[in-house]
Write a protein that binds this DNA or RNA. Structure first.
Lengths: 209, 209, 209, 209
DNA sequence: CATGAATGAGAATTCATTCAT
DNA sequence: AATGAATGAATTCTCATTCAT
């Protein structure tokens, strides 16, 4: 019904959304096995049995939650990207704007949790993993590589493989976002804004002709 | 039959290691909550009760396993680093050698598993998280920043903050190692060797004066 | 089939009582460590897990059971005492009536079991022990000492310390009740009624002026 | 080999005695099911396996321990009784001496523990229970009833059934001994010596012609 | 004889799932 | 549709007993 409906999901009325939201938090905190339906129900302000009205079992709820989260994240990313209006100005300016957008996006709780779940739990769900790899990671990189290709064409950047450069870009951004999310353990990091500037400067230097 | 490997008393002092090893695999695969003591026992070729002779409970076993794994990884890393003999040759040569060492190290199962556990499970164990941040991540970076500082001094590299550059280095290496470990989902990646070369070239370019 | 006694939801508020009742029997028979939750559940006609809906663990169930049993016993004792209408007639008549009431009360399964549990298991639960000492033993004696004080005042009894006499009273009654409960081992005992008469006669003789 | 050997027991060399001693404490504290062989071994300063060299299993150890304790208690009681030289002096004097002896005896840890075990655990061991009833309780009473019979004959005491009077005697002494052993819960009790005097006076008054 | 590490059956506890209301 | 008490299979944990040394 809504924009984001994919065949595998029911129409997200209020109740399911509430539950998926709670599931997102609990699974994000403790993983698939560690989260308790009881806690999810409590957080969703719903009786335990109600969950089973919408999802056949815990695993399905987990899958659905991950999928929904990915889809939502994707929509946000696309919005962010187009909002960046990346077809105007120099490639460098575009890249700076996109880097900023990514930075906001990656530090989002949604993405952070996704990151964690992907790393440990998604081994058991290859289809979700593939979806993540294709739709989130790879697609995300396309935006970057597009800009870089244009920069290379225009002679703004040195002659790098745009795919490769985009991969380098995302490696730097992703790692830093997780570190910043756990800032309490990495005391040497500057503020999120400083980190962004550092990444941009370092990265753009590597693209200079 | 002879004197080895009778059901009881196989190698008395090896027991904890045996168990920790099995724990590493099971926890690494399914996380703290998802792993079953039963499976750990089976893998360690030990009775369920035996585990409790050495660890008071599941959580303690998990903690100990993570800690031990980190310590071992650390030792390996240090050995690798010194083996690289990084005080000879140009800074670039040293960095290349170290980058190669890191690459081997990071693609190790031990480190990959650690990575996953850190990301999802270590939220509940801040002390382990801190230990990881300090001893593994931060300490590892010191090796890199040392070389870079020397390169900067010698005029081989541009005038970057070595700390910062080391952070960039590890962000690239770490992300790529996880992607390569899940190569089946990232079809566009070249071989591990190619990826290493790509990273080295890209990174060194960003340091050229 | 009709509206009663379907497997689930039998009498929602009765559950704790049902369980405590079963616990009383099992713990009373085999003690805290010896009783099995499984058997308690079976006797309560409840699934094992149901117990944990009402009590956090075995020990808590035990404590609660002991406490409840004591409180119930107390209520019964008070009722018995007031029913004896001990403010009418001679002190001797009152004492005879009360002695009879106590005799009935003490030979009750509830009290017998309590006795046993107190003696062996309550060393580990000083608060319950104290409760028993204060509320059951000491309070019980007050009833007796009141009557005796009145008997002394009226010159019916010799000049004894009522507290002390009440203590003697309860020592005789309590011991005999346990012996009668194990009559098979004490073949020389007469019937419960004879024993009562013997106690009353002996005791009252000791109070004659 | 020793005096107390009954057919069912092995000769008590040092080791078994050590173990029985430890068993006495642990079983006395936590009962048959609650005590752990591990703790018994530790207390006996013996390896866990060693226990099985002398006793086929936990239950047998328990039985043996109870039996031994009873036999020992009995021997002590007899000694105490004959030491009281109860065939000289008035019956009252003898009774006072015996009452004193019993008082000492009953407040012994050995007897206190026995008391507790009898009440809860000995339901499962009818033979031990019978042994206790016959040899400890009933036999003990014989000493008292003998003196009373003599007192009655001599006109010192009123014409009571000596058996019955002995039963009253033991009921008073036994109850008070357990209360005094848990003195912390019965704050109104005087010192052990006072309690003894109170019991003697009360009891002898009941025997006055 | 003595040891104590190892065992595994058995008991306590948890929690996903069901179902009467 | 929604509830949440009840279930029982699955899991953790305990401890009497064994046995290689």
């Amino acid at each position: 019904m809504t924009l984001l409906d994919t065949p595998r999901r029911r129409a997200p009325e209020a109740r399911p959304t509430q539950i998926l939201d709670a599931a997102f938090h609990e699974f994000g905190e403790r993983g698939l096995a560690g989260a308790r339906l009881d806690d999810i129900a409590k957080r969703a302000q719903v009786a335990k049995g109600t969950i089973y009205l919408y999802f056949p079992n815990k695993e399905a709820l987990f899958r659905e939650m991950v999928h929904t989260t990915m889809v939502t994240a994707l929509a946000v990313a696309e919005a962010e990207a187009s909002k960046a209006g990346f077809l105007t100005g120099t490639a460098e300016a575009q890249l700076r704007r996109l880097g900023e957008g990514w930075w906001t996006f990656l530090r989002t709780e949604r993405v952070q949790v996704l990151q964690r779940l992907v790393s440990l739990e998604l081994g058991q769900f290859p289809d979700l993993m593939q979806f993540y790899a294709d739709e989130v990671i790879t697609r995300g990189r396309r935006l970057v590589s597009g800009i870089i290709a244009r920069g290379v064409e225009r002679g703004e950047f040195r002659n790098v493989d745009p795919q490769l450069a985009a991969r380098m870009f995302s490696s730097i951004w992703m790692s830093h976002s997780t570190w910043c999310a756990r800032r309490e353990f990495f005391k040497t990091l500057g503020s999120d804004e400083q980190v962004l500037v550092e990444m941009l400067d370092f990265y753009l230097y590597a693209l200079r002709p």
